[in-house]
Nucleic acid binder design. Structure first.
Length: 568
RNA sequence: CGGGACGUGGCGCAGCCUGGUAGCGCACGCGCUUUGGGAGCGCGGGGUCGCGAGUUCGAAUCUCGCCGUCCCGACCA
């Protein structure tokens, strides 16, 4: 392909509102353009990368026996009402001309269950794996980071249909194999981490996370690789401080002390031997105040607390705290709270061991020697945020926390959707049984963007050969003879399946080299004055050092060798 | 949804405070020169200054309203 006929709108400067590296480079390189908030077009270059990514996904999905199909983006609202998902705020809703309610799908569990209900009759029809690669719509409150979080995006979503939980586990395991291969082939650094199953429950889930600074998730990783989890549900073993000997709770004066730091400093004690009181108001019909307790140096994880409460919540106001506890916010504790004053007390499980300094519910006073079970009780839950350098629960190794973007997820749904939509089969005994479902998503655009996040240098992108828009970029300098030679090399390489761009644009060589670097094609060939001088062309790897001079006649063989040797 | 910022040729920006009819760099077109790392000279095209009201003799500039976009937070089945 000739560059002169290709849409290559490269920019020297990134748009001022591009913050994430992938956003800047993909726009500058002419891969994508923004149409509106969270709405993007893929220009020819970007679409080539997207298509190669999707081709890898297709190959690996087909390899585990998945069957590709295509389902509509627009669904009757009724399907979503039946599963209780019609009220999701991020769901786009619309009406047709006669007022029928429709939704724009954010995933396809409903339609899959609808088809399963209609077409699957017998246990002999199972298992099935169905997937499609289709547009998804989500009314995101805040699209961001270019192509990383958008309102419309393409997703590969697959669904397993099985007779029972064992079948689901097998389908799930197949997807683990396929996903490992997909992300590896795409050249991504990634981790498979345990993930939250959300408010919908489910029987387990993992996310595939690509580390990158623009990511919006945090994951906890063990140094020995035997534990990896999203911090939304990650657990750890915190270090244990030295506690003072057990004693009956004793009140001490702490005038003006309102923070853990001040408390530890004032009393000259380890902050890890203090207790932090967080007072929240659940936002459901029941109302009331909840006292959530974590160790002084720990943070409450909001999603964990939400799950423990079973509802969203807001912080209590200082007035609400004073009305209920009779003390200012800095002096609140669990001991001596009147019966019925609170909806409940939540105790982080770390606090079940040790004697702590806690608020006395008397402004300017704290209690020393407070012990769980003896001095206070409550529902013991995990509500704390895992921190770096805590210990792995599996092997005791050190944990680290990394920022990452979710590029895929796998989810054991169970029978929830099947039951809601009547997707059943008859077992060997003629009994009607619900179909067990799993769902498995991959975001090709996120793969593309996280490759850009992970693989770039000061000059531009460094695509892996498997998804690069072209395998080889030939810069032909000086016109006629060089261009003829470039075309000849392209023709021969094409016979071996390599995608080649011949840059014949009437631009100075410097500009064209800079574009080639920015666009990040893995193998670079220069056909220029050395062709006439000594019959050689230049070959180099993007990101590699040094160009090799190769006789033009050996160029094709040499390039093929280089292509074989390029690491993923 | 709460907080903040920004909207001026395709991209990056100045002009706004202090009102007088729009400018710079890159990109683009033409000509000549140049051709192995973002070339030089000359000529040239392109802007409802986000939209709508208002104030004023006069608004990119001041006032009000709306729209859009980005960032932080919340949200994210």
């Amino acid at each position: 392909m000739r560059a002169s006929g290709l849409l290559l709108p490269t920019l020297r400067d990134a748009p001022g509102d591009a913050v994430a590296t992938s956003h800047q480079l993909l726009v500058r390189g002419g891969f994508v353009r923004q149409v509106g908030a969270g709405l993007w077009s893929y220009l020819p270059l970007g679409f080539k990368v997207l298509q190669r990514t999707m081709a890898i996904i297709r190959e690996e999905m087909d390899a585990i026996g998945a069957q590709e199909m295509l389902m509509p983006v627009m669904h009757p609202a009724e399907l979503w009402r039946q599963t209780g998902r019609y009220d999701i705020t991020a769901l786009f809703k619309l009406k047709d001309r006669v007022g029928r309610d429709l939704v724009l799908a954010m995933t396809h569990e409903e339609v899959i269950a609808f088809h399963a209900a209609a077409e699957v009759r017998s246990y002999r029809d199972l298992p099935q794996i169905w997937y499609h690669i289709q547009t998804k719509e989500r009314d995101e409150p805040r699209p961001q980071a270019g192509v990383l979080r958008t309102r419309e995006f393409i997703m590969k979503d697959a669904y397993t249909l099985d007779r029972d939980r064992d079948g689901l586990d097998e389908g799930y395991a197949k997807h683990e194999v396929a996903y490992d291969r997909i992300f590896t082939r795409a050249g991504l650094e990634f981790w498979k981490v345990e993930s939250d199953t959300g408010m919908m429950g489910g029987f387990g889930a993992h996310e595939y996370m690509a580390p990158c600074p623009a990511g919006e998730d945090r994951v906890a990783l063990c140094q020995n690789g035997d534990y990896a989890a999203n911090v939304e549900l990650a657990v750890s073993v915190p270090d244990r401080p030295a506690f003072p000997p057990s004693q009956a709770p004793a009140e001490v004066e702490t005038p003006g002390v309102a923070t853990i730091e001040a408390l530890a400093g004032y009393l000259g004690i380890d902050a890890r031997t203090t207790m932090k009181a967080v007072i929240v108001v659940p936002e459901d019909a029941r109302g009331g105040l909840v006292l959530a307790l974590v160790r002084g140096d720990h943070r409450v994880h909001e999603l964990k607390l939400t799950k423990a409460l079973g509802t969203s919540f807001r912080p209590a106001t200082p007035e609400e705290i004073r009305d209920t506890f009779g003390a200012d916010p800095g002096s609140i504790g669990a001991v001596g709270v009147g019966d019925g004053a609170l909806r409940e007390v939540l105790v982080d499980d770390v606090l079940t061991d040790g004697a702590y300094v806690a608020g006395a519910n008397r402004t300017g006073h704290h209690l020393v020697g407070v012990e769980h079970g003896r001095d206070f009780t409550g529902r013991v839950v995990d509500i704390r945020h895992v921190e770096a350098d805590e210990r792995c629960v599996v092997c005791g190794g050190a944990l680290r926390i990394e920022t990452a973007i979710e590029v895929g997820n796998i989810f054991k749904l169970g029978t929830r959707y099947a039951e809601a939509l009547g997707a059943t089969y008859q077992d060997e005994n003629g009994r009607e049984q619900p179909i067990w479902m799993g769902s498995y998503g991959i975001g090709p655009a996120r793969i593309l963007a996280s490759i850009a996040e992970q693989r770039h240098d000061q000059h531009g992108l460094l695509w892996p050969l498997a998804v690069a828009p072209f395998d080889v970029w030939i810069t032909a300098i000086g016109g006629g003879e060089a261009l003829d030679e470039a075309d000849r090399i392209e023709e021969e390489l094409a016979r071996d399946g390599l995608k080649v761009l011949v840059d014949d644009r009437a631009l100075s060589p410097g500009v064209r080299f800079a574009d080639a670097d920015l666009i990040g094609v893995p193998i670079r060939v220069t056909v220029g004055k050395r062709l006439a001088k000594d019959g050689t062309v230049g070959v180099k790897l993007r990101g590699g050092d040094g160009e090799q001079s190769v006789p033009a006649g050996d160029a094709v063989r040499h390039i093929l060798g280089v292509a074989d040797g390029v690491p993923v």
